[in-house]
Every structure is written in C-alpha cells, then in structure tokens.
Design a protein around this nucleic acid. Structure first.
Length: 952
RNA sequence: GCCGGAGUGGCGGAAUGGCAGACGCGCGCGACUCAAAAUCGCGUCCCGCAAGGGGUGAGGGUUCGAGUCCCUCCUCCGGCACCA
C-alpha cells in the first residue's frame, strides 16, 4: 500500500485542473447557471488569512456540489486592489503601488491555487487595472449626469500632525491610527453620491431578497426610517421660520423652546438679530473644534447657547419660546432643528433642567394591556374606575412597601378604588388601613397628575378603563391592627429598597408611577393629551395627525442614512473624471476619453493642504475644458475603495468587454448572483453601496434585475487566542502555507469546515487539525487497500446509513452547516471501516467527500479504477424507495418523562402493539404495578411515555 | 440606552418539543513494539462500589415530556448610539 502523500497528490490534481481549465464557466445559455460569489480580497502584504479560507472553501463546496448536480457554475475571483494599506506602504518605502499590488496578488494567487479552490481564473479582474476602472469612472459619470453626484462642503477627519485627511476606518477612538494624534474636523468640498434618494427602495426591497436576517436588520437600522411631522416655528419679528422635525407632534403644546444645530444655516442668518452674536459665533466655532470623542463622551453635559433677544412662536399655543443653538442636535439629520419638549423627552428634559427652562406636562400616560389574560377584549365597552395607588414609605428606613397578589402574581403597590364623593387622599388612607393594617399614617400627598390604564378585569369579566392617582404615604411607626382574614390571604407584603422595587414591579403603569417617586418625572411614552387646547382629551396617535394638520405641518419619513462622501484626498484610487473650468464650472470628462489614467508620481505623500498628491503634478492637473476649450484643472481627489467593489460582480459576467462594462446578454444570463457570502462587517457599507449602484444601473436599464444578490450569507470571524482579531501588528496571524505543507490542503479545508458553526466566530487552534488529517488518512487506508473481493450487495443497515448520510450532507451544505456535514462524513467512514463495504458504498462516500477534500477524493476515485469520471458520476441522491418501510427503530420507554429503557419496535407498529410490548418490559412493568397508570403517549419511532401516579 | 446573537463535559461543539453530550480534540487503560512514534481496541458529564440519583447561565411557567416554546433576570459577544 502506498502511503498518503498530500504534497504529491495535491500538486498532481491542481496541475490537472489548471491544464484542463476544469473550472472555466462557459457562456452557454442553454445550460442552467449558478453564480456563486465570495467577496474578492484586498491583496494585502500579509498574504492569505485563515478567515479567507473559511468563507471561500464553504462556497467552493457549494460550487463543486452544483457542478456535480449539472449546473453551469460561475465561481470567479479578482482583486480589490485600490486602498490604503498599499498606499501607506508606498509612502513608507517609495515603492510604486502597482508593483506592490503585483507582488501581493502573485502571492495570493499561488496560495489560493494551493488550496484547490475551484475559481475560474480566466475571469480574474483587478480594480486598479485601467481597463477595469475605466468603467468605474464611466458609472460615476452616469451618476453625475443623473444628478446623483454633487459637490458639497463636509467635515473630514484631519490629522494635524501627519497633515493628512483620514478615512473613518483610520480613526481609532478619535485618534489617528498611525500617530495617535487626536483627530480634528476640517471642512472640505467633496464629491457626494446621493444614496439617500434610494433610501426608501433600499429599505423596502430588502423584503424581496434572501439575506440572513441579521444583515437585513442591520441594513434596516442603518437606513433608519422614522415617520413624523415637519412643523414651522415662525421667528418673531422676522420672515424666517424654523422648521423642526418631530415624531411626536402630539406633544407640540409642551414645546417650550426650539434648538438649531450649530451647523444650521439659520444660525448665521439669525445671529445679527440677537444681542449675543459674538458669543453664538464662538460657540459654533468651538463645537467644530471639539473632537469626536469629546462630543460623544458618555454622560457629557449638554451644552448650548440662547439666542438672546429673539424668539419663535409655538404654532400650537401661539406662545413665544426661546431659541437655542446646541450641539446635541445634529445638523445632518432631518431639518437640523427640533422643538424642545422637556416633560416628554429625556434629552430635552436634561437640557431644560440645566438651562432652567419651563417644563410643561401635556401627555398623561395611558397603558393598554395587549397580551396575557388581562389583555383588552376587542369590541367590548370599557367600565371607567377611579383608583388610588398608595406608595408607602417605611417610617425609618429608605424602603417602600411592595405588594404581591398571590393569585395573579401581580406585583406593585397597595391599590384600591375611590368611592363616590371621596378624596384621593382619604381613599388611600382607607385602603392602606384595610389592606395592611398600619395605624399611624403620618403624611399623605398626591404626587403628579393621573395616569390611565386599559385592561381586562378577569374577575368581573369586563374591560376596565382605570384612572390612577398616585398617593405617597408616610407611616409614623410600624404599629398594626389585625386585618380582615379574607384580605389577609390575598397578598403578601415586602419592604423593598428603591433598587429592589424597580425590579419588583411587574406592570408598566405601576413602573411609570414609581419613576415619579424616585425623581424621574420625564415621560416619553404616549397617552392622553392635556393642556393642549382643543386637542386635550385625545389620544396620542389621533392627536399626531390632527395637530400636524392644524399647524400646517407636513407628515413625512426621514432617514438616518446619509449621502456617501465619495472623495478621498489620496493617490491610490480611481481618479474622479471631472474637470473644473474657470468659465463652465464642473465639466465631466467626455466618455470617449476614459479612462482617466492614474499618473505615476515620485512621492505618494498627500500635500500639506490635505490635497491629493495628484494636485502637485502640473502636467496632469492642467488641462483644457472639454466644453469651451479654455483653461481648466482636473479633479485631484480619487474615489474611495468602495467604488470598484460596488459593481465587480457585474464585470465577472463579461470581463474582457471593451465596449461596455458588460454586455446585456451576458448579464441577462448570469445575474443576479445566486449566492453571495461575505463578512458581516460589510453589511452596511459595501453591501448597501453595491445595492445602490445596482439599482441605479437598473433604472438606466443596464442591468436586468433590481437587486444584485439573490441570497446573502455570512461567515463568522476566525479570531486569535484570547478572542482578539488577527492582525499583523499583533503578530497573531496564521499563515496557511505552513499548514498546507504539513497537513495538506484537504485536511486544512476539512478542518476549517469542522471548526465550528459557520456563521459564528471561532477561536483558532492549531491542535485540532490533526483530527481531520487522521480522517483523511483513514479514508486513504480504507480505500487504497480496496480489492474486488468486497461484497457487492449492501446490507439494509448500510443502505440506511448511506441514504441518511446523503440526505444529511446535502441539506447541511445548502444551509452551510459545514461542521455537521464533516461530522457525518466521519460517521459514515467509521461505519464503512467497521463493516465490509461494497464498492458502491465507497464510491458514494468519495462523491460526498469530493467537494470538501477534492484532491484526495479524486485520487482515490482514480485508484478504485472506476470507469466513469467523478465529475460525470454526479452528486449522489437518496434512492426513492429506501428501506424505511421495514425499518425498526429504537424507542425510548419513559415513566413520567424519564427514560427507563429502550426497545426495538417496527416503525409501523400500532399503538396497541407498541404499548403491549412496552408494558412487558422488565424495567417498566414493576413500576407500572407499583403505581396507577394514568395515561400513555406513543410517538412512533421515538418514544413511549407512561404517566403514572403514586409511584412508590 | 436601542437592535441582534450566544450561554450545554477539560476543550471545539451535536441534538424537526421525544434516549442530552453525536463527531472531533485532549486525557486514561490496553494491544502491537526491545522501545518509542504511528496505528488499532476500550473508556471518558457529575455523585455513587452498586442500585440509583443529579445535570444544558439563574428563577418561574406551558406540556405526558423542555437544552429547544413563553415570562422575569444575569453574563458574554457583535452592531448602532444625543437620529428628535
């Protein structure tokens, strides 16, 4: 027997696949296609990461299975080559980024091939290749021509030491990634892409795609729609209006001030009308210099400045309200201005308190019970009741009396109805005496206004509409009188500290009242309007629309999503194909002059002014205007590295096309991507950006589908020891080359699939790879010693094992449960080893193994001397009429849910037969005899459970 | 704070509401060997000699039966975070 030599075998098969172009996708539209995609890598100097292997092997298994199933598979690879690390390396070494990229992609290509990944190398693309970025620039021009690319002033991250603009991902905890200097904000004109125009569609169309739920949720949160009203507050003595956005127009009558964001244009317009213009301008300036960490620091006190001498009119109350400028209001969200409603918004409450502004209650809480046995019954009238809630303070300690109702589990306070003509305080005293027996009530006071609750009163079988008044009761001492016995059994009492009480309370209405006792006055929920003119008495939902209408406001949806800052003051990216003419303004480069080639430079350092190194190349920068022929300059900013990756999956369909980014025929055949796997870290940037570009191209009828990816899955990260991310700087990166050399690509592939649930993060460990290596060796030993003397007919047990394995592995691959698929392969091999397998069984095993460990499977297949080529043999399927008809199964016998024995029973056994047999079992019959059998449950093929009372 | 995900042996982890710990790593014992490695066999949740009992972050609930479903809470991880 020849030993298993992974080096020899893997080299042989990799050469064979390369030579035969085994994985080239044919543009053969007569065959059913499958487009399987992984995120193309950034070719960093670190080489391939074990994390790449996890994702790519999983989809390689999918691609290989699809080929065996007869599909025409496109599984492409390329390079997302533009980007910061290469540029930073170039700055440090002076080496041309093109050369660095070439070196790195060579390393990646060699490593990928050594893993036996079945990529179609004939479609390899590179985003930094002019034949590729020509089309990236072309798409940008289309965006510009359709009004989706525009220039705007934005704040960029500026490192004052390196004198360089930083991308968000280079800012770590508010400091420059390289030198640690605190990052400042600097204003700069930048190209922007109007992704917000697509916000609604990007949000709604998530319903039409098969993404993992978490990715959908994250994108939805990121896009962040929010419905509300835009309401104008006129500025007194001026024709200006402050437009605020609010989701709670029902609280308008409680708006006691308005706030403008420091960036709001009205700030500078209104400042001259104020008495403190200078101070306002100083505040605005100061905000801009505040660093990111300071601004977002936790528990930071809200700052702001009053615009003295001017005020606005609350369109509801018609009263004058103060105008503030404060940086807790964001300039980039909604209208950049808010109305301050301190009583019903936590942030406004905090601000109003620090500025001494009026706090006005306009909503009384209404809690509607919607689930559980006391949920409001629809179509049933309400009976109204007034009630008191008595919060009783301990005579000496800082404790309050908690009440637990034994029957329902309701936990709260002493509570009771107010009788006809009774005062709330009187009612509270009476209830406290009756329920608790406390005699010496020292003080009683009403705390705040009423709150309301709607629920179903189970005892009386009616819908209740209760109005609670909170009464605070202090005791003189702990002396008690005996209470009525029928009261006594109803509840128990506990003295609780304020913290314990917060956890003790079970119902929301009681929680709201308790909040008042511990000083939380602000209530941000909905309820019934008060102090709101003609709207008083309405409920929040109804009042929202009515008040908006009354003050001439607009009901609309705003999004958290911001437009995409598309400029980078860098070198290693696609030049933005725009020209600034002194006469004509911004003029796009004519399409027939594309690509605008990224010129070679001598140094890659950005300039002191923060402009791209391109700005210093005068022969490139100075050009003529395509429109008027006059003097003009090129845009020196480049695109972000999200640009090339926003459409690369389209280029794979037709990578050599010089006339179009891809031909309509090829796109029609190959798109959409059927299965796209990538990291969760790309959910809100890359994935959203490419959906945006795709939808834009769809609107121009250049792509056939409205969504690029039909299905999206995600792999969990592979972490280094201690749960840290692997990075070169921490020196904890695992180089796969050594593992492939020692254990072989097949063992490594199997190990990465076996390491844990595919979608969860795992911590890398070197020791366990020995397990999959042993598995491969055992398969090798078993099959390479195979002789023709083997049995030719499978035992029923073998048939069962085989069909179960086929079904399990097939479905596990589809749901990326690769760890249990490998486990099943191991179980199957264990079985084959312990029996005398048939040739057919061994062949099926190899076909199941081949997507996971293609080299060794191919070699053993060949060794078996099978006449059909493995690719032709196809993916195994379970025989239609399997042996399940006759099957017997192990059935657990339980007494009161506890397993006492196991017996073999035919699947088809009737309940009577099964129970009869079970009752006779030595572990069962004595136990049945000792008690009284109440009932028996029979689940065929699974379990028999005897419910026995009074078992001794 | 808000939105997700996860808590199961020494470790990675299995388990359509139906025999908890599959499969693998590690460990222990044995076989082979002069010996070791490799390989093979057996064992390996906890308490107990055993019979038996206990056990899936904690506490309740639903069910004949709960790791799995419901409620309350704790811990860890990820994302967002003054979004009006």
């Amino acid at each position: 027997m020849e030993g298993y030599d992974h080096r020899k075998i893997e080299k042989k098969w990799q050469e064979k696949w390369e030579h035969e172009k085994a994985f080239q996708a044919k543009d053969d539209t007569s065959k059913e296609k499958e487009y399987v995609l992984i995120e193309f890598p950034y070719p960093s100097g670190d080489g391939l990461h074990v994390g790449h292997i996890r994702s790519w092997t999983a989809l390689d298994i999918v691609a290989r299975k699809r080929r065996l199933e007869g599909k025409n598979v496109l599984y492409p690879i390329g390079w997302d080559a533009f980007g910061l690390p290469t540029e930073n390396y170039a700055i440090k070494t002076g080496k041309d980024p093109r050369v660095v990229t070439k070196e790195n992609t060579d390393i990646f290509r060699r490593q990928i091939k050594s893993l036996g990944l079945s990529f179609d190398w004939s479609r390899e693309i590179n985003t930094s290749d002019p034949t590729y970025y020509k089309w990236t620039q072309w798409i940008f021009l289309q965006l510009y021509k359709h009004g989706l690319a525009y220039k705007a002033k934005t704040l960029i991250n500026w490192c004052p030491k390196d004198k360089i603009g930083l991308a968000n991902e280079e800012v770590i905890d508010g400091a420059c990634e390289r030198c640690g200097t605190l990052v400042q904000k600097r204003e700069k004109e930048q190209w922007m892409l109007a992704i917000t125009k697509y916000a609604k569609r990007l949000y709604e169309d998530l319903d039409s795609v098969n993404y993992i739920e978490q990715a959908k949720i994250q994108q939805r949160n990121w896009i962040g729609p929010s419905e509300g009203a835009q309401i104008a507050f006129p500025v007194l003595g001026s024709d200006k209006k402050i437009e605020v956005f609010t989701t709670r127009p029902d609280t308008l009558y409680g708006a006691t001030y308005v706030v403008l964001a420091p960036e709001h244009p009205l700030v500078l317009e209104l400042a001259p009308l104020t008495k403190n213009k200078g101070a306002i301008e100083t505040y605005v300036k100061a905000t801009r210099q505040t660093s990111e960490i300071e601004r977002t620091a936790e528990a930071r006190e809200k700052t702001g400045i009053l615009m003295e001498g001017i005020c606005a009119i609350n369109p509801g109350t018609k009263e004058a309200v103060a105008i503030f400028v404060a940086d807790y209001v964001l300039g980039s969200y909604a209208t950049g201005a808010i109305m301050g409603v301190p009583h019903h918004d936590e942030r406004d409450f905090e601000f109003a308190k620090s500025k001494g502004l009026p706090i006005k209650e306009v909503i009384e809480a209404l809690v509607v019970r919607e689930q559980g046995e006391d949920a409001v019954k629809k179509d049933m009238p309400f009976t109204e009741r007034r009630a008191v809630v008595a919060v009783i303070k301990h005579p000496s300690k800082d404790k309050y009396l908690g009440v637990r109702w034994k029957r329902t589990g309701w936990q709260g306070f002493v509570i009771g109805g107010i009788e006809e003509g009774e005062e709330a305080q009187e009612a509270a005293k009476r209830e406290v005496r009756e329920e608790t027996g406390y005699k010496n009530i020292r003080a009683v006071g009403i705390l705040g206004g009423p709150i309301h609750a709607q629920f179903y009163q189970t005892l009386k079988a009616e819908n209740r509409f209760a109005h609670f008044q909170l009464v605070l009761v202090e005791l003189g001492d702990e002396e008690k009188t005996e209470i009525a016995p029928e009261e006594k059994v109803l509840h128990e009492f506990l003295w609780l500290s304020p913290e314990k009480m917060t956890a003790f309370i079970t119902h929301r209405d009681m929680q709201i009242l308790w909040d008042r006792v511990i000083g939380k006055i602000c209530y941000s929920g909905t309820g019934i309007l008060v102090n709101s003119g003609q709207f008083s008495g309405l409920q929040s939902e109804e009042a929202k629309k009515k008040i908006t209408e009354f003050v001439g406001g607009v009901w609309l949806t705003v999004f958290k999503l911001r437009d995409w800052v598309f400029s980078r003051q860098r070198y290693w990216g696609e030049p933005i194909p725009m020209i600034l003419c002194k006469k004509c303004g911004w003029v796009p480069v004519p399409e027939d002059e594309l690509p605008v080639i990224l010129p070679e430079v001598t140094h890659y350092q950005p300039t002191d002014t923060g402009e791209s190194p391109l700005a210093t190349i005068s022969h490139w920068i100075h050009t003529t205007c395509p429109s008027c022929g006059g003097e003009a300059t090129r845009e020196s900013d480049v695109m972000p590295n999200w640009a090339g990756s926003s459409w690369y999956y389209l280029r794979y369909c037709d990578p050599k096309n010089t006339k179009e980014f891809a031909s309509p025929e090829h796109l029609k055949y190959w798109t959409p991507v059927d299965w796209y796997n990538g990291g969760m870290e790309h959910t809100t940037l890359h994935l959203l950006y490419s959906r945006f570009w795709h939808k834009f191209l769809y609107d121009l009828a250049l792509v056939p589908t409205s969504e690029p990816y039909a299905k999206r899955t995600s792999h969990g990260l592979i972490l280094a020891k201690g749960g840290e991310k692997m990075s070169k700087s921490k020196g904890n990166v695992i180089n796969p080359d050594g593992l492939i050399e020692r254990f072989g690509a097949d063992s490594l592939r199997l190990y990465e699939m076996f390491i844990g649930p595919f979608d969860q993060p795992v911590i890398w460990s070197d020791t366990n790879i020995i397990g999959t290596r042993r598995f491969v060796e055992r398969a090798w030993r078993l099959i390479s010693t195979f002789t023709q003397h083997q049995k030719t007919v499978m035992s029923p047990e073998a048939v069962r094992m085989m069909s179960h394995s086929i079904a399990k592995i097939s479905s596990d691959i589809e749901s990326l449960k690769m760890n249990t698929a490998v486990s099943q392969l191991m179980i199957l091999l264990n079985h084959l080893e312990s029996t005398t397998p048939t040739m057919q069984a061994l062949e099926t095993f190899l076909r199941l193994l081949s997507p996971f460990a293609p080299h060794v499977a191919g070699e053993l297949w060949e060794k078996m001397g099978t006449t059909t080529a493995m690719e032709k043999a196809g993916w195994p399927t379970t025989p239609k009429e399997s042996a399940t008809e006759l099957e017997v199964a192990l059935v657990a016998l339980q007494i009161n849910g506890k397993v006492r024995a196991t017996i073999e029973l035919p699947l088809k056994a009737s309940e009577r037969e099964a129970l009869e047999k079970a009752r006779l079992h030595p572990a069962i019959s004595p136990r049945l005899a000792r008690g009284k059998e109440v009932r028996a449950v029979y689940v065929p093929g699974r379990v028999i459970n005897f419910v026995v009372s009074d078992v001794a």
